[in-house]
Design a protein around this nucleic acid. Structure first.
Lengths: 221, 221
DNA sequence: AAATAAGTTTAGGCAAATCTAAATTATGAA
DNA sequence: TTCATAATTTAGATTTGCCTAAACTTATTT
């Protein structure tokens, strides 16, 4: 596997995430996420197409090739292993790890990454609950469901948050919800789809549908 | 302290090391070490002068300003902390850590570096025996002497190796000499200044003057 | 089906970091 | 002191990644 620039890696990684949602990734869509201009996207797509990392026809959007996906997974592996390290070993709070890992993920020495994995005890989920690809790029699927889809009175644990904006994190923090928090849905309101939830040792309180859709939980654990 | 490009950081760090030896660093000298062309050095010196990181007059060589030295020390701090981490925690062999740390050192997040320092227990020497600057840029001086200058029959510990070429490392490895190895000089030969040395549980053997000048030891420890 | 709006690409430029080749400055030997 | 050589700088290109503005394609609306 060849070496890629930081810029190329950021494009590849972001396309990977975007194409989980939509069939094809669009120029404007990617530009918005990468905080850059559509023209820059087109330039890079030409380059990545030439390197056979994306399928791309002008005006038709793009997707990663299998080779592109492999590379994306190796970048995501690095990112999430560093997040785990920062959280578990350096005691960063879980909302700080992402930004720091954005830099560390571009150090692409394979031996470093594999030894880090070993040092951490081969964790398969990062502090946000996202799966960490193994050295072959394989990921375990954990069947997470959004809080909004939970049945009433069944206990589960928060394992993933699909929005890492600071406004989101602020709200989570204010409500004392974090990765690992045990939660139960007590009631659902038809009017605005808001939910009443209960955390351990706390009185129930109400959260919006919008928030509940972004908090993912897993039974057990 | 502002942010610098990877390229700028490599120039600053290398000038710092070179100016320990010589009064002024030269264009050709720096070009040789950085594996680049003299013209590139001149370009960068103009930029670093403008940023007040080097004293530079055309044709007269250059040195770091105090500000430049501060930045150099922070880069060296990162480099050596990562070396320590790689060696101590990830079990890299001591001749592998340098190359990997070359990449990690450019992640300049201050909180990351300070937390890493804390996680490692605030070590003050890296696996090569070089001092690690603290968060204020202060370094402990350890009085190392080259093996070639040791008195006879006095025991000391290898703590530094001033040449990290693979040919050097190969020779060290072949002779079972590593950082931390306890060593004693048994005899010095006037003819070619070669030395007979003895390691723990081994028969004495002879090494060249050239090698002995590059291996540094410290008493005690 | 044509017109318009939205999305995308092209063309041309800029800054960083590098290069080669030519010009300039310094140095030390005769 | 002058001159040849070595060291350094300048001038002009190149590559990467980004930009703006203009041109073009696609999709939508009437």
């Amino acid at each position: 596997m060849l070496n890629f620039s930081i810029s190329e890696e950021n494009y590849i990684k972001t396309i990977f995430h975007l194409q989980q949602e939509e069939k094809n990734v669009t120029t404007n869509g990617l530009a918005a996420v990468l905080q850059t201009k559509p023209a820059s996207i087109t330039d890079m797509m030409k380059k990545l197409k030439q390197k056979k990392l994306v399928h791309y026809q002008p005006y038709r959007g793009f997707r990663l090739t299998n080779e592109g996906k492999k590379i994306a997974l190796s970048i995501i592996r690095r990112h999430r292993l560093w997040e785990y390290f920062l959280s578990e070993k350096l005691k960063f709070s879980w909302d700080e790890v992402h930004a720091v890992a954005e830099d560390l993920e571009h150090v692409s020495n394979k031996k470093l990454v594999d030894k880090l994995d070993e040092f951490l005890g081969f964790p398969r989920f990062d502090p946000h609950g996202d799966p960490i690809p193994d050295s072959q790029g394989r990921i375990l699927k954990n069947q997470q469901i959004p809080l909004s889809e939970m049945p009433l009175n069944k206990s589960a644990v928060v394992c993933n948050v699909s929005d890492q904006s600071s406004s989101m994190l602020e709200l989570m923090d204010h409500n004392n919800i974090a990765i690992g928090t045990r939660v139960e849905v007590k009631k659902k309101f038809d009017f605005d789809h808001s939910l009443e939830i209960k955390l351990r040792q706390q009185n129930p309180f109400i959260i919006s549908d919008m928030l509940a859709k972004k908090i993912f939980v897993k039974y057990g654990a």
